[in-house]
Structure formats: C-alpha cells, structure tokens
C-alpha cells in the first residue's frame, strides 16, 4: 500500500483531536502546553501534506512561520509558569481561583 498525501491529512486530524482533548481535560500546565504543541504540529503536518497535493511551496513556508510562532508562545508560557510557581509552589490549574465573578 502506498502512502498518499491525504493519509497525512488524516493523521494530522487525529493528532489534532488528541491535542484538543488533552487541552480540555488535563490540569497540569505543562501537559496543557504539550497538548497545544501537538495541535500546532498537526497543523504543520497538514500544511506540508497540502503543499505536496498542490505541488506548491507556500505550505512549507507557512510551516516555518508556524514553528517560530510556537517557540515564541512556549517561551512566554514558561515565563508565566515560573512566575506562578514562585507565588504558589504549584503549577496546577486549580490554584487559579483569585478572579471570580
């Protein structure tokens, strides 16, 4: 059986779903960040597969931007996690209870 570009799209959708479920169900901030990374990387995979389908380089370029964006996002996230840890000695989402309406 040959592997075609659209198989990669299906794989990307599966990984994206796993990432979404991870973000919505997990309480540990690191696991949430990792799940978002899964979602972003599945989008990258889909972009490359679509690029192959269209025989068009644009998808590859978009992936470069997307990776840079993901790296910048994670660096801000880690800074926030460190600040949270200094205040609470804990990085679970359960400590975020100060702001309620």
């Amino acid at each position: 059986m040959t592997v075609l570009p659209h198989h990669y799209v299906i794989l990307a959708v599966i990984v994206f779903t796993i990432g979404t479920v991870g973000v919505l169900t997990r309480k540990n901030l690191f696991i949430v960040l990792l799940s978002v990374e899964l979602m972003l990387n599945s989008a990258n995979l889909a972009l490359v597969a679509f690029s192959k389908m269209h025989a068009h380089m644009a998808g590859h370029i978009i992936v470069m931007f997307s990776i840079a964006i993901a790296a910048a996002e994670v660096s801000i996230g880690l800074a926030l996690i460190i600040a949270l840890y200094r205040l609470h000695d804990d990085i679970g989402l359960d400590v975020l209870t100060k702001l309620r309406g």
Binding site: V32, M39, N44, A46, L47, F50, A58, L84, L93, L96
Partner: peptide
C-alpha cells in the same frame, strides 16, 4: 492569574486558527 487565563485559551485558539489556515490552504 489573569495572564495565564489569557494565555492558555489564547494559544489554544491560535492552534485552532493555524489548523483552519491549513485547511483553507488545502
């Protein structure tokens, strides 16, 4: 707390948007 409550949904929505752009491109 405000920053984290902004950041977490924010990157989640960005990931969804990147996937959306991938589909539109596809």
């Amino acid at each position: 707390e405000a920053a984290l409550k902004y950041y977490l949904p924010g990157i989640f929505s960005t990931a969804i948007m990147v996937m959306g752009i991938a589909f539109i491109f596809g």
